[in-house]
Amino acid sequence: MQQLNLFEELAPALPVSYYPDFLSVQEANELYQHCLQLEWQQNYIKMVGKIIAVPRLESIYGDAGCDYIYSNSVFLRPLPWTEKLAQLRDSITALTGHKFNIVIGNQYRSGEDSIGWHADNEPSMGVEPAIASVSLGAVRKFQLKPKQGKPTDFWLEHGSLLIMHRGCQSTHLHQLPKTKKFVSTRINLTFRSHVGKTA
């Protein structure tokens, strides 16, 4: 498995690893088609006293009882693992040694869909969790920055794997910004741990 050290070359302090060829083109294409058939939902989030639509579609699969809450307003209850998602989880565990209980899917339908600056540090994920992120479909700009620093821009390819190592969520923020350029659908699968505490 080739590990491309773009992150290390451009920003040596970034606590991440990147594998551009984690999946073959055929594997990535098949997984993308599978993910299009997942149960996607439009969720709503409370921000500044208003209820607004989350600017993307979401799905969650995983172990029973691993409910997930983020921003104190969006509740996700996992559906049972599909065979392909479970196989992907096991492949990532074999590579990284990290075990995951859930996978959260984000479907970015166009350049208008996005996710703003944030850290994935919900209590249910435990202390200093590692997160594995698989990208499928269109290439979108991904940004990562220290909480008090400037962002570094990267483009995550179809079939690639990004590992945000333990500690990353404490020291860094990340986002997928909007773009005015035409882009087709991108699906992101983030594999996460779950320790049972949702609030």
Rank of each mutant, 00 (worst) to 15 (best):
A199I: 05
A86D: 13
D21P: 00
T171R: 13
S170G: 09
C168N: 12
V127C: 06
Q107W: 09
I163E: 09
Y44Q: 15
F182D: 10
F7S: 05
W40K: 07
V103L: 06
E122L: 08
I131S: 07
A53H: 01
T198Y: 11
N121I: 05
Y108F: 03
G137Q: 02
S184P: 00
E39V: 09
P151R: 10
W117M: 11
G105E: 11
F154N: 05
V16R: 15
D21G: 02
S114M: 12
N5L: 12
I163P: 09
R192L: 03
V127I: 13
W117L: 08
V48A: 04
M1W: 10
P123T: 09
L79S: 11
Q169F: 06
Q37H: 06
H118S: 11
V48C: 02
H158S: 08
N101K: 15
L57Q: 15
E157Y: 05
H194A: 10
I115M: 15
L31E: 11
A132P: 02
G126A: 12
H98E: 13
H174Y: 06
H158R: 10
Y32D: 00
R77N: 12
K147H: 01
R109T: 00
P146L: 10
S124K: 01
I115Y: 04
L95M: 11
I69D: 06
A11H: 13
S91M: 10
R186M: 02
D153M: 05
G196Q: 04
F22W: 09
H158A: 02
K141I: 07
L156C: 01
Y70L: 10
M47E: 03
H172E: 04
G126D: 08
Q33M: 03
I52C: 02
Y32W: 04
T93R: 12
K181C: 00
Q3R: 15
D67I: 05
N188R: 02
P55A: 09
H174R: 06
Y44V: 05
P123L: 12
V103C: 13
I60C: 11
S24C: 07
G65L: 08
S110A: 01
I69T: 12
L136S: 06
L38R: 08
I115D: 03
D67H: 13
Y108L: 00
A130F: 03
L14I: 15
L31C: 06
A94P: 04
W117C: 08
G159K: 10
Q33P: 00
A64N: 11
P177M: 10
N5W: 04
G149Y: 11
A138I: 00
K99D: 13
I69P: 01
K50D: 00
V54H: 09
F100G: 01
C35H: 03
K141R: 14
I60S: 07
R89N: 15
Y61A: 08
V183M: 01
R56L: 07
